[in-house]
């Protein structure tokens, strides 16, 4: 009936219900406040409208009222703040065992790669009911990955990885938009998220012909680019042994400790001198401009795979 006047977007993620509930609460409070203010303004304007023989009464103010109408909004705002913060905290904290998918944005398309090696363009297939973590970067300007049905967005920034996660709750096809202005065809940088039943998803996943998992491609690159000559696994090379490094704290030459996450691995490939591991010399050359964003994500995925237990690693390299 309201084909041309939709009032509410479909909701399809574990997150969308939480956002809708808070949004509705805000709408109710705002409408009530607006009506109350309008009613009081209207009442005063009418009741005290200018008439003959009636003078305005001089009133300077009222301290108790001032305190009340400063404290009451502040109290209400604290509720909004806390409720919103809880949702945000949840939206920003991916569950430990999420399925990871890499996203590389460019003017004006979305390139997606599953760790199993499937690549997609402007389409993302995901299983329903599973936690999905997106690891995203851009190879040119800032974009923003936005799926209104999931009530989530995250800017995709060149030069680093940003992440977001979601759990789709309803099979279907949903719009994917770029929400950050990115040039001429900004409004054309749209795609679809296809949420499938798990079995259907497995069929889809095995249907493509990937040229190997991301970790396998990464391993190949690791050898081709000569990384393996210094980062050795048998004896101590000129660079640190990368086994078990990912996800762990790393002690740096300058005394700091950082967690070896995706951004750390990425930075160490592109700007190796930025964070040198304690006990090593800054001799690694930069690979800036020599590896594409896709190759970088494969290398990151390979380094990650070196930290999985051997059984997991076998499964991962076999394409699961």
């Amino acid at each position: 009936m309201f084909d041309n006047f939709p009032l509410w977007p479909v909701g399809a993620s574990s997150h969308s219900f939480a956002v809708d509930a808070l949004y509705l609460f805000l709408v109710v409070v705002s409408v009530a406040t607006t009506l109350a203010i309008f009613a009081v303004v209207g009442l005063f304007a009418f009741k005290y409208r200018r008439r003959h023989g009636r003078e305005a009464e001089p009133i300077e103010g009222n301290l108790i009222l001032e305190i009340a109408w400063s404290a009451a909004p502040m109290g209400l705002f604290l509720i909004f703040f806390a409720w919103g913060a809880i949702i945000f905290f949840d939206a920003r904290t991916p569950p430990q065992d999420s399925t990871e998918i890499y996203v590389v944005a460019k003017q004006w398309m979305w390139k997606l790669e599953h760790v199993e090696g499937q690549r997609e363009l402007n389409e993302l297939h995901v299983p329903v009911g599973k936690d999905i973590k997106l690891i995203m970067t851009s190879q040119d300007v800032i974009h923003s990955f936005y799926v209104p049905a999931f009530r989530l967005k995250q800017d995709v920034i060149p030069g680093r990885y940003t992440t977001m996660w979601f759990k789709a709750t309803k099979p279907g096809t949903y719009h994917l938009f770029c929400a950050q202005y990115c040039g001429t065809m900004h409004s054309g940088m749209i795609g679809e998220v296809v949420v499938m039943e798990p079995a259907e998803y497995q069929t889809w996943l095995s249907g493509g012909v990937p040229s190997g998992s991301m970790a396998q491609n990464g391993q190949l690159l690791f050898t081709q680019l000569g990384c393996s000559t210094c980062h050795r696994f048998d004896v101590q090379g000129r660079g640190p042994n990368l086994t078990g490094v990912y996800g762990k704290p790393v002690l740096l030459e300058d005394g700091r400790t950082v967690i070896a996450d995706e951004n750390y691995v990425r930075e160490s490939i592109l700007i190796p001198t930025a964070k040198v591991v304690s006990g090593f010399k800054p001799v690694m050359p930069s690979f800036q401009g020599q590896v594409s964003e896709e190759q970088l994500t494969s290398l990151v995925e390979y380094v990650k795979s070196l930290s999985l237990s051997s059984s997991q690693a076998t499964a991962a390299s076999a394409g699961k």
Partner: peptide, 23 residues
């Protein structure tokens, strides 16, 4: 201004902002 101010609260609310930001 009342409506503008109140809808500003929606945007200050983190959980809602991730949906309506840049829209």
């Amino acid at each position: 201004f009342t409506i503008g101010g109140l809808t500003g609260l929606f945007l200050a609310t983190l959980g809602v902002d991730i949906h309506v930001h840049d829209t």
